[in-house]
């Protein structure tokens, strides 16, 4: 049976959806990360070759996405812990969520250059 319209939940529901999505993304990253790091056991040269293929703008952009996912998951995770263990948590959840979003935006702006400098230098040359 088709489900009808989507349930119109508020911030709480969407933060949960975002938490799930970022969690799954981080899991897939860790999966690949364990694989490529374990290549050191095969041979250091093989490891170097694989890591060298990561040095391109596309993977760099994915790294930026990874920073975004981890930052949101970490900050929202702290909010969920507060909701669970702090008596005023459930009442303050909306305020805490918007605080999480603000901190997330600030940290994302701050991470643009450190994370993307390789691509910036590659595309626009060294200033």
């Amino acid at each position: 049976m088709p489900a009808g319209t989507m349930y119109r939940g508020r911030e709480g529901m969407w933060s949960w959806v975002a938490h799930r999505v970022t969690g799954v993304l981080i899991f897939f990253f860790l999966f690949v990360h364990v694989l490529d790091t374990s290549l050191v056991r095969v041979s250091p040269e093989a490891y170097d070759t694989v890591i060298a293929t990561y040095k391109n703008p596309v993977v760099n952009l994915m790294e930026f996405g990874l920073v975004a996912a981890i930052l949101f998951h970490a900050l929202n995770g702290l909010r969920i812990i507060a909701v669970d263990f702090w008596a005023k948590g459930p009442k303050m959840q909306r305020t805490m969520l918007w605080s999480v979003v603000v901190v997330w935006v600030v940290l994302m702006l701050g991470s643009i250059y450190p994370v993307l400098q390789h691509t910036i230098h590659q595309l626009f040359g060294k200033g």
Binding site: Y7, G9, R10, E11, G12, M13, S15, W16, I80, V83, D84, P90, Q93
Partner: peptide, 9 residues
Amino acid sequence: CRTTFNCTD
């Protein structure tokens, strides 16, 4: 419970 707060709303 995943604290989505849908129930409270």
